[in-house]
Design a protein around this nucleic acid. Structure first.
Length: 367
DNA sequence: TATGCGTGGCG
DNA sequence: TCGCCAAGCAT
């Protein structure tokens, strides 16, 4: 019996577990949203949706998922697609390593698993970009395996129902929630139950002003009983993003401008940008830009006028980016694979991070 | 265990 | 406005 083999670190009796599991399951079957990836059982398409949904809202993902599936309808086609095309399909979604890992994963599935997404926790977890949450989500949703899928919603919902006051930012806390979530799964119904937990967190048991009156398990919720649902889950504060002064150059040659590709690893890997870099210690922005252009291309360039100022906040960085029109006074920049002179009207065929995309937009408005 | 990695929406 | 938040993973 599963009740005897499964244990939770949280104090929950079987009757409560059964009531909560059934309550959420039945509520979900009644109210679930009609999302495009809920109309398929294709493990590949569910995989794509789960990766896109990492740290990303449903409303944002929908158009990206539709387009991505249209462009790459099968694992085979994704595995064989040119990488820049795949990156382009992700442009604007953020966390770009997700899509690189997704394509690598597709290649692993093709080469090591005969083209079929594996259906065991051990095997699927070997795929790049597939962590504990995504593994559980794909297995339960696509294959009906009774494994938990603990994301931010589940942390919030379960911490409230069972009044769990552990800090969810601590990695070890995940195990507490995973064992509890597994204990709650109505046998054979992990697909609907797991999605129900997340749906509840996304629509009712939301971070602020939770709609407890509409909750199917309100009567079982210990936080609601204590009136402290808004204080949960316990989450330690993150550090504020570090401010960085950035510069970038607008170098023109007729109606063409100079762009370059960022390195294959690190921040915004492989995306295109206007050349420049961080302000260097002890230098002004203009001096730093001149130095960056000299280092990168071996040319002398003078920043003349300020073309644009762009503020952009990442999860860990805050860019204050100033884009200067520059005049080349010595040397010239030759095209290479990762350095191009591009007509303004063709810039849209390249993939830019949002900060540089704002500059592209400014430029396009001038044409 | 702590940090790097995007972007857009909301109160 | 601005801090927080949204279906995390890799290192």
């Amino acid at each position: 019996m599963r009740e005897e083999t499964r244990r939770s670190k949280v104090d929950v009796d079987r009757k409560t577990a059964q009531a909560v599991g059934a309550g959420i399951l039945h509520w979900y079957e009644e109210v679930k949203r009609d999302l495009p990836w809920r109309r398929t059982r294709d493990p590949y398409k569910i995989w794509v949706s789960e990766v896109m949904l990492q740290q990303t809202r449903v409303e944002t993902v929908i158009p990206y998922w539709n387009r991505f599936i249209e462009l790459f309808p099968t694992i085979e086609q994704l595995a064989e697609a040119p990488e820049p095309n795949v990156l382009k399909a992700w442009e604007g979604l953020g966390y770009y390593s997700r899509v690189r890992n997704l394509q690598k994963g597709a290649q692993v599935v093709r080469d090591k698993f005969g083209g079929r997404v594996p259906d065991t926790l051990d095997e699927i977890s070997t795929l790049p970009g597939v962590g504990p949450y995504t593994a559980g989500a794909i297995l339960s949703i696509a294959y009906d395996v009774d494994v938990p899928a603990v994301d931010g919603n589940v942390f919030r919902v379960l911490s409230r129902i069972f009044l769990i006051e552990e800090d969810i930012m601590k990695p070890k806390t995940r195990r507490t929630f995973e064992s509890l979530a597994e204990f709650l799964i109505p046998p054979g119904r992990a697909a609907s139950f797991n999605q129900g937990l997340m749906e509840l967190g996304a629509t009712i048991c939301i971070p602020k002003n939770p709609r407890c009156h509409a909750c199917p398990v309100q009567a079982k919720c210990r936080a609601q009983e204590e009136g402290i649902q808004e204080q949960l889950p316990i989450k330690e504060k993150k550090k504020p993003p570090r401010p960085v002064d950035m510069t970038a150059a607008l170098l023109r040659d007729g109606d063409r401008v100079l762009i370059r590709r960022r390195p294959e690893s690190g921040l915004l890997a492989g995306m295109w940008e206007f050349p420049g870099g961080e302000r260097l210690d002890g230098m002004t922005l203009e001096e730093s830009l001149t130095a960056h252009l000299r280092d990168a291309f071996g040319v002398q360039a003078n920043p003349s006028s300020l073309f644009a100022q762009v503020q952009h906040t990442f999860s860990h960085l805050q860019w204050d980016m100033r884009v200067y029109e520059c005049a080349l006074t010595a040397g010239q920049v030759r095209e290479q694979e990762d350095v191009k002179w591009v007509a303004i009207s063709d810039l849209s065929t390249y993939t830019f991070p949002v900060a540089h995309g704002k500059v592209v937009k400014e430029l396009s408005g001038l044409v």
